[in-house]
Amino acid sequence: MAMTNTQALILIAVITIATQLTRALPFILFPESKKTPGYILYLGKVLPYAAMGLLVVYCLKNVSLLKSPFGIPEAIAVLCVVVLHLWKNNTLLSIGGGTAVYMLLVQLVFK
């Protein structure tokens, strides 16, 4: 441990407060008792679709197209997930298959 127990506890408390603040803020600003503005409701309707796009990009953010292996393992594995899912429509199969392919690629092929 790089710090004392007290320091570690303080740090964890600080991270907890900041994390839960980001989760609670929308609910504090727009409570049930007040009418939520139409604009916010509109954002609530369309954001999930945009946020999922952002999350996919976030997962792949450290992939470099300029350095070896040029994002090839990620491209192949994502393609596997897409093809498997459109073909069989089985969530666990798509995720498990894609991950297995990716692990094989990074461990055996693109070392």
Binding site: M52, C59, E74, V82, H85, T91, I95, T99, Y102, M103
Partner: peptide, 16 residues
């Protein structure tokens, strides 16, 4: 190594 691709795959599936 590579196991964290689980999360990428999950988000891709939900996106689809």
């Amino acid at each position: 190594s590579g196991i964290d691709f689980v999360m990428t795959a999950l988000f891709v599936v939900i996106f689809i």
